[in-house]
């Protein structure tokens, strides 16, 4: 480590943290890699695609909100199992999850993404972007698919993906943190553990640089999601109020 800001950590500590984060990721990843890989051949048939496309816009929005919420519940469990997270004050736990849980869902999307067919696992089968047409947010969908594709091109191992997810979740520059320096130390340790793991796996330095570049892409994706939701809510306030999952509303409400 270098500079006053970097925490002093031993290799043992980094190894221990990496193990803890990998284990937490594997316990909460929602779908096992083998399950996902085995079902890549199961893509939606044309009539099934048309069935999604002919659903009323608000019904498809509700379905997607439910799926996102399910994925987020696993991310909350992931966060809870990361060493040090539950030692943060409750305000900061909430701040980090509010800002970062969807970002981790987008990162995890690459595990369920098939680059060959440009499809993602959704509602039991692999779906192309056309499945989501009725939502009326093609830009957001295309960006999410592009992000998953670019994450896949990095060929990260599950361990590396776990550490990158934790690094994103522990972002110390989120607004409204009360114990910013405590979060900063945790994030720095996670970054060191990620760096250590990349070196151990003999990945080049440029992988870390590429991953750091993803930070702003992820933030862009999430703000686009918020904007799209606001536009939807403006037209269908009662649908959101009465039919969207309470956790989704808590996270993205305002």
């Amino acid at each position: 480590s270098s500079g006053d800001m970097s925490p002093t950590v031993s290799m043992d500590e980094l190894e221990h943290l990496a193990q803890n984060i990998s284990k937490s990721h594997m316990e909460t990843c929602q779908y096992l890699q083998e399950e996902l890989q085995q079902s890549t051949w199961q893509t939606f048939l044309q009539d099934e695609v048309e069935c999604y496309q002919s659903k009323p816009k608000e019904v498809m929005w509700q379905l997607c909100a439910v799926k996102i919420t399910e994925a987020i519940q696993y991310v909350v469990e992931f966060a809870k199992r990361i060493d040090g997270f539950m030692e943060l004050c409750q305000n900061d736990q909430i701040v980090l999850l509010k800002a970062g849980s969807l970002e981790v869902v987008f990162i995890r999307m690459c595990r369920a993404f098939d680059t060959q067919n440009n499809t993602v696992y959704f509602d039991g089968k692999y779906a192309g972007p056309e499945v989501f047409k009725v939502l009326g947010c093609d830009d957001l969908i295309t960006s999410a698919y592009d992000f998953a594709k670019s994450m896949c091109s990095l060929h990260l191992s599950e361990d590396e993906l776990a550490l990158f997810s934790a690094f994103i979740l522990l972002s110390s520059d989120r607004s409204w943190l009360q114990e910013k320096s405590k979060v900063e130390k945790l994030q720095q340790k996670t970054q060191l553990a990620l760096q250590h793991m990349l070196q151990k796996h003999q990945r080049g330095e440029e992988i870390l640089t590429k991953l750091i570049c993803k930070v702003s892409t992820l933030r862009g994706l999430c703000s686009r999601h918020t904007e799209t939701l606001s536009a939807f809510r403006a037209v269908y306030p009662d649908i959101v109020r009465a039919h969207f999952p309470p956790l989704y509303k808590e996270l993205f409400g305002s």
Partner: peptide, 20 residues
């Protein structure tokens, strides 16, 4: 706290993914 009732609950519960 009221504003983030469910998040608070999830953070306090000793849930596991199987329970979700």
């Amino acid at each position: 706290k009221e504003k983030h009732k469910i998040l608070h609950q999830l953070l306090q519960n000793s849930t596991s993914p199987v329970d979700l």
